[in-house]
Design a protein around this nucleic acid. Structure first.
Length: 511
RNA sequence: GCUCCGUUCGUCUAGCCAGGUCAGGACGCCAGGUUUUCAUCCUGGUAACACGGGUUCAAAUCCCGUACGGAGUACCA
């Protein structure tokens, strides 16, 4: 609000499609930024060249486009703190690593991955866990144990090395998390993390601290999986002598059943998308479904995601993106993980679908019809959609609730036949056909008037007639007001359906 | 193993920070109502403070412990 210097970032790694947990993290960042009149930045963290996946960055951008989440700065927008892709910032990290070496906060380590692995295995055999920490570093191959000339020689010879952060010994690091409050950790349980890799790239830890500082990030809002490395990051800021941003660690999204965080497999197993958009793996060709392709509206998706871990503090449930911005506050974000609930997601979609205008829905429905090679002819799709939209959760479901407007029922549902095709139905329907044949004005209002008058005159049961009638027109016991249906399909089709139904179903003998 | 984080109806959650309401709402489910059917809709119902101590006149709320769960523990982010 009053703080115009709020700057937050979402910093995904382009290693594949964006998980919905990531979408939620980005959403909360966005909401926080907009709520406080700040900027939202998209930074791509591609410091691991081995895990680069083509198309992943484009996917991320497209996903946010679909969601309606806009960035103020970033890979697609540019900005005065660029470049926003870490691979494009490669050169600047080295000097910061050097700064730490000079100040004695970091050191060269020449141990090869193989050597370290051997030690790790050895200790494992003794049921111990190896960590490159204050104790271990004193007898490993690094610039702390080697003489300056030895180090110089190794460096000159081009020996591969990494740069490790020298974790201070026996200090209590006090951290303040905006969601969890105070967290304390003693450095004696921390290890000397690699901050600069032998391939010349920084690790996440160095890169994110340097970039957040350079990009003047005011609040780091990220997933809970980063909480364990917060002490390192805080130590890094201290070692550089930089002001720290505020930190907030969001709870995880959990799988709907069982334990653990939501994974791609859960979606496949339980039949719901774990990604905002459909994704085709460039290597395996494997397709993962997306919310967009599954028929979710972006506003429903966002509304549902926002409420998974945050609440407005009152009983409101429906929020537009702008409404979320207005209502959002980091204090109302929960501490514990949330399970994704598919039923509630559907309910949200239903809500937004019903809220849409019939014209808009008709447009979407027309695409469905085209795919099925159904020609709606002169039929008023808006009107039809308006009659059935309350019965569906998705546009794609509109067809099964309205196919009888376009097609003669292929079969008569056996259950319904058993229940509604009574002994008298045969005669009743034949009579009804004659009655309707004489009707000129086939409007819903008029046919209803005529048919009801006939029923009353003959003292037939309303239910008996109408249910059998519906069976012949629709094929089963479903659908909107019957007279509305026959108005749409018209007199000719209505009479044909009655005629055909009577023929096929025949006269049921009394039991 | 170790470190950190967490734990209110089946699910999302309010309430916890500033102890005192039959622990509230929503989804789901069940029942009833409306209706020519189904769905919508309306009404009602179901169902939770992980456990054990402590502090207190009083604890979901504060403190300690236990259990359970999760995350991290890579030259991945």
């Amino acid at each position: 609000m009053e703080n115009s210097s709020v700057r937050v970032r979402f910093a995904p790694s382009p290693t594949g499609p964006l998980h919905i947990g990531g979408v939620r993290t980005a959403l909360y960042n966005y909401l926080f930024a907009k709520k406080n009149g700040g900027s939202f930045i998209l930074r791509i963290e591609d410091t691991d060249q081995n895990r680069f996946v083509p198309g992943a960055e484009a996917y991320i951008v497209e996903a946010f486009n679909w969601c309606g989440i806009e960035f103020d700065e970033g890979v697609t927008k540019g900005g005065e703190y660029g470049p926003y892709r870490q691979s494009d910032r490669k050169d600047m990290y080295r000097e910061y690593a050097d700064l730490l070496i000079q100040s004695g906060n970091a050191y060269y380590a020449f141990d090869t991955p193989e050597e370290l692995n051997d030690i790790r295995k050895q200790l494992e055999a003794e049921k111990k866990i190896f960590t490159y920490d204050a104790v271990q570093r004193t007898h490993l191959k690094n610039s702390l144990t080697l003489s300056p000339s030895e180090v110089k020689n190794l460096l000159h010879a081009g020996t591969p090395y990494v740069i490790r952060f020298k974790m201070p010994t026996d200090q209590v690091i006090v951290m303040e998390d905006e969601i969890r409050g105070r967290v304390e950790v003693n450095t004696s349980v921390l290890d000397d993390k690699i901050i600069f890799k032998s391939d010349g790239m920084p690790t996440y830890h160095l890169a994110n601290v340097v970039d957040d500082h350079l990009m003047k990030i005011s609040h780091v809002i990220r997933g809970e999986e980063w909480l364990p490395s917060l002490p390192l990051h805080v130590s890094l800021y201290d070692a550089f002598g930089w002001d720290k941003p505020k930190f907030a660690h969001l709870p995880l999204l959990l799988k709907p059943d069982g334990k653990g965080k939501l994974s791609k497999r859960d979606g496949d197993r339980l039949g719901f998308p774990v990604f905002p958009l459909q994704w085709t793996d460039p290597e395996s060709g494997e397709v993962s479904r997306g919310y967009r392709e599954d028929g979710y509206f972006p506003e429903a998706f966002i509304n549902m995601m926002a409420l998974l871990g945050w609440n407005p503090g009152d009983e409101r449930e429906f929020f537009s993106l702008a409404g979320l911005v207005e209502a959002f506050s980091i204090e109302k974000v929960g501490k514990s993980g949330s399970r994704f609930d598919q039923e509630k997601a559907k309910w949200f979609n239903h809500h937004y679908l019903v809220e849409k205008s019939n014209d808009e829905l008709a447009g979407l429905f027309l695409d469905v019809l085209k795919e099925k090679n159904i020609d709606p002819g002169q039929k008023n799709l808006s009107y039809i959609v308006g009659l059935v939209k309350e019965r569906v959760n998705f546009v794609a479901e509109l067809w099964e609730q309205s196919s009888f407007f376009f097609e003669v029922p292929a079969v008569y549902d056996p259950q319904t036949v058993k229940k509604r095709w009574k002994t008298d139905s045969f005669e009743h329907m034949k009579e009804l056909e004659v009655v309707l044949k004489q009707v000129q004005d086939f409007s819903s209002e008029n046919t209803e008037k005529v048919v009801k008058a006939w029923i009353e005159e003959k003292e037939y049961g309303m239910g008996a007639i109408m249910n059998a009638f519906r069976l012949l027109i629709v094929g089963e016991a479903k659908g909107p007001h019957l007279f509305d249906i026959i108005e749409v399909i018209g007199k000719e089709d209505t009479l044909a359906r009655i005629n055909r139904g009577v023929e096929i179903l025949g006269k049921k003998e009394a039991n």
